[in-house]
């Protein structure tokens, strides 16, 4: 009988060891968690446009928006000549605060942050950018792996209704408000 008991214990140990092995193997295969994508101090960054972004647009409706970009983003390149192609360097972060209303008061805080992070080699990148939605109350960042964000922003690479409107259809690296072009937007006053 003792032999049966020890055999049973041995079986249990083997089962536990197998379970631990499988769990550790699965854990080793799982993708490591991403570090925080948008740093907390992003509100100290410079704005990409002086246009008041309170007009309705698909995706954000008529909620007031403020767009900031890190210093690296401002080193973007713009091709000379008619193409005027714009390319942002890897590491560019464009953060867009979304407020709850179109005309928030001075004490109102944004409820959500949407961000574009230039990371062409990242497998989750769409159009060379990571598209992130951050819940500002919980701090949780959600990577958008679908084509929702990039599909809208692809319109920035052709003539569009916002800011400079990009009448020449220059490639603008998925950014509607490229610094230096917003004067056109200001002048239109359409959006």
């Amino acid at each position: 009988m003792k032999r049966d008991g020890s055999a049973s214990n041995c079986g249990m140990l083997l089962a536990c060891a197998a379970a631990l092995f499988i769990a550790s193997y699965a854990a080793s295969c799982a993708a490591p968690p991403r570090p925080t994508l948008v740093p907390d101090g992003y509100r100290s960054w410079s704005l990409t446009t002086n246009v008041r972004l309170d007009y309705p647009i698909p995706g954000h409706e008529d909620r007031y928006r403020v767009i900031q970009m890190n210093e690296k983003g401002f080193t973007f390149t713009r091709a000379e000549g008619p193409s005027g192609r714009v390319d942002f360097p890897e590491g560019t972060i464009i953060a867009k605060d979304i407020f709850p209303t179109s005309n928030p008061g001075p004490t109102d805080l944004p409820v959500m942050l949407t961000a574009m992070i230039k990371a062409p080699s990242d497998p989750d990148a769409r159009g060379g950018w990571l598209w992130v939605i951050k819940d500002l109350s919980s701090g949780m960042e959600t990577l958008q792996k679908g084509d929702f964000c990039v599909r809208c922003h692809a319109n920035a690479n052709e003539a569009h209704p916002y800011g400079s409107k990009n009448p020449g259809g220059a490639f603008s690296d998925y950014v509607f408000f490229v610094p230096g072009r917003q004067s056109a937007a200001s002048s239109t006053g359409a959006y």
Partner: peptide, 16 residues
């Protein structure tokens, strides 16, 4: 089907 920015001229901007 998304209401893309370029669609808004005809279909409006009040929906996504």
């Amino acid at each position: 089907l998304l209401n893309l920015p370029k669609c808004t001229a005809c279909h409006g901007s009040d929906h996504t």
